[in-house]
Amino acid sequence: MSSDAPKGTLPALGPAKAGGGAADFLLTRLEEMVSWARKNSLWPFPFATACCGIEFMSVASAHYDISRFGSEVMRFSPRQADLLIVAGTVTDKMAPVLRKIYDQMPEPKWVISMGVCASSGGFYRAYHVTQGIDEIVPVDVYVPGCPPTPEELIYAIMQLQKKIQSGEKSRDQRSAKLAAERIS
């Protein structure tokens, strides 16, 4: 995935650095264990607005059963969630709400943008549709598809798990920098 990525992308993800002394060794192992625990208990906040929300329901129901990945605990309070899944079109009217929810989530937090509407506005190049939620919140994983199949979302969650294991916490600061560059 990252090998043929064009320039402008973020640096490739690697495992957490191995430390020097005994204390470092212990702490690194601990860090890895924390990452491992984090990636296997992602509690999602389903920000389901539209069609993708219906496919998200599929992911949660019997056929796909997201609990196999430790993510079945849907939290409708942002303060208890650490994965924001934005499933569906976000309009300009909804944008402040999304930002508020994101701000209310405790660190570490991750964002999956499910479907093309959330990722870029999709085929709604229109007067009331946010052209990608990365205008509002930083996004960790984008999932294409309109709507993505449930497998595609699970695949994205697996990618995110890899990323969490590598030790990256959130994209917030780096995204803010990218966004600032884009505006100027």
Binding site: M1, S2, D4, A5, P6, G8, T9, L10, S119, S120, G132, D134, D140, V141, Y142, V143, P144, G145, P148, T149, E151, E152, Y155, A156, Q159, K163
Partner: peptide, 16 residues
């Protein structure tokens, strides 16, 4: 269908 991207730029698929 197995696609997921970390950035928007890598989602533009070229001929390759």
């Amino acid at each position: 269908y197995e696609m997921a991207f970390f950035t928007r730029e890598e989602a533009v698929f070229s001929i390759d």
